[in-house]
């Protein structure tokens, strides 16, 4: 694909903003609309935009695909791990109350960690899927 000046300049300006917005949605999800699922999808949309404009090879330099596979499993492990930690501290599986000093603090920490796990897995899986489709067309 021929390099297009307008696309390059505009996307270089937009991509940091999209990533910043994804992080906002991730960590502000407790108070406003948002959460792990949305943040993961928005984050992966930023990197897909980068891959569309600058090419797949450039995008794979930022996040190599073996790292993506590790991240996808890591997110699910964080989620399941929070449950196991709660189990070890003497509560039910995925009952976050025991994670903090009181109920509110425990629930808050648990929800934050769980949403982080969701966000990492969703972002990594969406990128894996896009890279698989785009890489298939490469000769």
């Amino acid at each position: 694909m021929k390099p297009n000046l307008i696309l390059h300049v505009v996307s270089k300006f937009l991509i940091p903003l999209i990533i910043l917005f994804a992080l906002y949605v991730q960590f502000h999800g407790d108070f406003g609309p948002g959460g792990g699922f949305q943040a993961g999808v928005i984050f992966s949309a930023a990197l897909i935009l980068y891959a569309l404009v600058f090419g797949l090879d450039a995008a794979e330099k930022i996040i190599p695909s073996h790292l993506l596979r590790i991240l996808a499993s890591l997110g699910l492990l964080i989620y399941a791990g929070v449950g196991v930690v709660a189990l070890l501290l003497g509560a039910n599986y995925l009952d976050y109350t025991v994670l903090g000093s009181n109920q509110i603090a425990g629930q808050h920490l648990g929800i934050l960690l769980v949403e982080l796990g969701v966000g990492i897995t969703v972002a990594a899986v969406m990128l894996i899927i896009y890279f698989a489709f785009a890489g298939r067309g490469r000769e």
């Binding site: 999800g29 407790d30 108070f31 609309p33 948002g34 509110i104 629930q107 808050h108 929800i111």
Partner: peptide, 9 residues
């Protein structure tokens, strides 16, 4: 119970 204003979360 959870201290999170967004009920959906």
């Amino acid at each position: 119970e959870t201290g999170v204003p967004n009920i959906v979360t």
